[in-house]
């Protein structure tokens, strides 16, 4: 099958509104056979997915899900789970490293992404779901809107007013902003436990320098290739070709002969996403849960981390 991929960025609100208003009519004129959508918000595009279904155009979601039963398959890591895993790391640190040792007590600064965005809400909710079990932990939450400068200002403001033990960033740039804030105050980032989702190149560098303690990395480069792969499988072989709830998808199950893109053969690093268990979402479609990896000073130089790929644009 010859595939032509048309990429449209959906992360701008105006694009979403545009798509909703157009009801994707123009896309059908172009003869689109299927859609892979990585949305910003999980409900805004539900009407678009319903419309696609009416026109027999299959939809697979990647990275961020759309809460519709008409989605064939969702491929992505759980933001909720990411926040939870890092909160557990923070709890471990508070128990083992912060006085009184053995008790989970202290102050945590959380720098949130944009409120109301699916990714932001998921990551935050996962994080507080763990911290809520520890009444002696004080969580101070600020919004960084995924932005380094805003996060730096907010973090410095809080650090001026409170004794903070650990910092959690909903994404890498905001954690870097927090590190910048600590340094601007003339303090040492190594005196804080800093945890973040997404291991960007600068985050890896900060981990190497001991400024960030742990990052949870997602297998971002694999989401859309896997989605395109399953879309083509569906178009050629039908629904039977898609993974079902209860399956565990391994690297061997996916027959992708990927090319080297920008000097990197990502398919030599299948362990980044596989094995991926498949579960049923509450929205009535299967979800292939790709793996995530905790990055610390012990493994930050791993060549399979996408941030270690030597890409021109990063």
């Amino acid at each position: 099958m010859k595939i032509t991929v048309i990429s449209v960025l959906l992360w701008k609100l105006e694009t979403i509104l545009l798509l909703k208003s157009l009801k994707l009519d123009e896309w059908w004129i172009w003869g689109v056979d299927g859609l892979v959508i990585g949305a910003v918000e999980s409900t805004a595009l539900i009407p678009a997915v319903e419309y696609a279904k009416e026109h027999n155009v299959p939809v697979i979601t990647a990275n961020v899900d759309i809460y519709s039963p008409d989605v064939l398959l969702y491929i992505g890591f759980l933001g909720f789970e990411s926040g939870k895993i890092l909160a557990e790391e923070i709890v471990k640190y508070l128990r083992d490293e912060v006085e009184p040792i053995g008790e989970v007590k202290g102050t945590v600064l959380e720098i949130r992404g944009t409120m109301g965005s699916a990714t932001g809400e998921d990551r935050h909710n996962g994080f507080v779901s763990v911290l809520d079990e520890y009444p002696e932990v004080r969580a101070i939450t600020v919004v960084g809107d995924w932005d380094m400068a805003q996060a730096k200002t907010a973090a410095e403001t809080v650090l001026r007013a409170y004794e903070v033990d650990t910092i959690y960033g909903d994404n890498g740039p905001m954690a870097m902003g927090a590190v910048g804030a600590i340094e601007a105050l003339g303090k040492n980032p190594q005196d804080y436990f800093v945890a973040t989702i997404d291991a960007l190149p600068e985050v890896l560098e900060a981990i190497g320098e001991g400024k960030i303690d742990v990052a949870l990395d997602q297998p971002c480069p694999f989401y859309t290739p896997l989605a395109v792969y399953y879309l083509v499988e569906f178009l050629e072989k039908g629904e039977e070709a898609l993974p079902k709830p209860g399956d565990i998808v391994t690297a061997e199950d996916v027959n992708i002969e990927g090319k080297i893109h920008q000097g990197v053969d990502i398919w030599a690093h299948d362990e980044m996403w596989a094995p991926a268990p498949v579960v049923e979402t509450e929205y009535g479609h299967p979800w292939m849960q790709t793996r995530g990896i905790l990055v610390t000073k012990d493994n930050y130089t791993l060549e399979s981390l996408w941030a270690n790929f030597e890409l021109e644009e990063w």
């Binding site: 409120m115 600020v142 919004v143 403001t157 809080v158 001026r160 007013a161």
Partner: peptide, 16 residues
């Protein structure tokens, strides 16, 4: 205003 409300550590939605 931004610094003051942030230092009060209230819910960010209320802060906004």
């Amino acid at each position: 205003i931004e610094a003051g409300l942030t230092m009060m550590a209230i819910d960010p939605a209320w802060q906004g």
